[in-house]
């Protein structure tokens, strides 16, 4: 038996909106730790890792570890039927082939049940090594989204370079080139608006903007985004989910030949 009651149901709606275009089908894993997901896009260039910790739910019952295969597009369609202020409860029976999403309006005058068929998904769970990153940039998530959107209208790849000077987003294409530098800007008054750089050594990597743009669909989940880079590893773009956990996107860099 599984029963997870999330008072801030909008968080789950936002999570699905942020991953449904990147990943088609995925297994949601439920354990004492929380409700989690790890999945790659179909071309194995990006990986998403989601954790909603059990403590973040008002009620969290998971009698035994469960893995539930879901089509994320269909799940998103159902969650779109929940109001932004609704409480969402996820229910499933052990060994069952369906999951139920229950939506309760804040004053309890409307209760909806949506039942969705589960799928068998052969997923490959990957071990993500703990890493010390060469550079970690924390910046306003809206600023990052704006930069990715602006640059993707010009070219399809971006070079992200971190130095003491700041973080630089550069592109070069048929019509010309662009450089956007965000300088370190620790803001004591408004920490969400600060750009903070922790750098062990300078790092510069090239990425497909199409994926970066897709990650920024998680912007409504958090005011800030953290970008962690090392020269030998996929970049990690992380959005914290208020007191509950995180959504992390890993993107393999383009490799010089």
């Amino acid at each position: 038996m599984l029963e997870l009651r999330l008072v801030q149901g909008s968080l789950l709606k936002k999570v699905l909106e942020s991953i449904k275009d990147l990943v088609t089908d995925a297994n949601f894993d439920c354990s004492a730790t929380g409700f989690s997901l790890q999945a790659m896009d179909s071309s194995h260039v990006a990986l998403v890792s989601l954790l909603l910790r059990s403590e973040g739910f008002e009620h969290y019952r998971c009698d035994r570890n469960m893995s539930m295969g879901m089509n994320l597009n269909n799940m998103a369609k159902m969650l779109k039927c929940a109001g932004n202020d609704d409480i969402i409860t996820i229910k499933a029976d052990d060994g069952g082939d369906t999951v139920t999403f229950m939506f309760e309006s804040p004053n309890q005058d409307k209760i909806s049940d949506f039942e969705m068929k589960l799928m068998d998904i052969d997923s490959e769970h990957l071990g993500i090594p703990e890493s010390e990153y060469h550079a970690i940039v924390r910046m306003p998530s809206q600023e990052f989204a704006r930069i990715c959107k602006d640059l993707s209208s010009i070219v399809d790849t971006v070079v992200i370079s971190v130095s003491k000077e700041g973080v630089k987003f550069s592109t070069r294409g048929d019509i010309g080139s662009a450089n956007i530098v965000c300088r370190q800007n620790p803001s004591v008054d408004k920490p969400d608006e600060a750009t903070i750089i922790e750098m062990q050594e300078p790092v510069s990597l090239t990425f497909a903007l199409r994926y970066m743009n897709s990650f920024t669909k998680a912007t409504p989940l958090s005011n800030t985004v953290t970008i962690s880079m090392s020269s030998e590893l996929p970049v990690v773009v992380e959005y914290k989910i208020a007191d509950m956990g995180y959504i992390r996107f890993y993107l393999a860099p383009k490799i010089e030949e």
């Binding site: 790659m40 194995h44 260039v45 990006a46 990986l47 490959e124 769970h125 990957l126 071990g127 993500i128 090594p129 790849t157 090239t206 497909a208 590893l233 996929p234 890993y250 393999a252 860099p253 383009k254 490799i255 010089e256 030949e257």
Partner: peptide
């Protein structure tokens, strides 16, 4: 020239 890297060449199946 660059080619797109693959997640599976960085993270191994667990």
């Amino acid at each position: 020239d660059t080619r797109q890297g693959n997640i599976l060449s960085f993270f191994k199946k667990s």
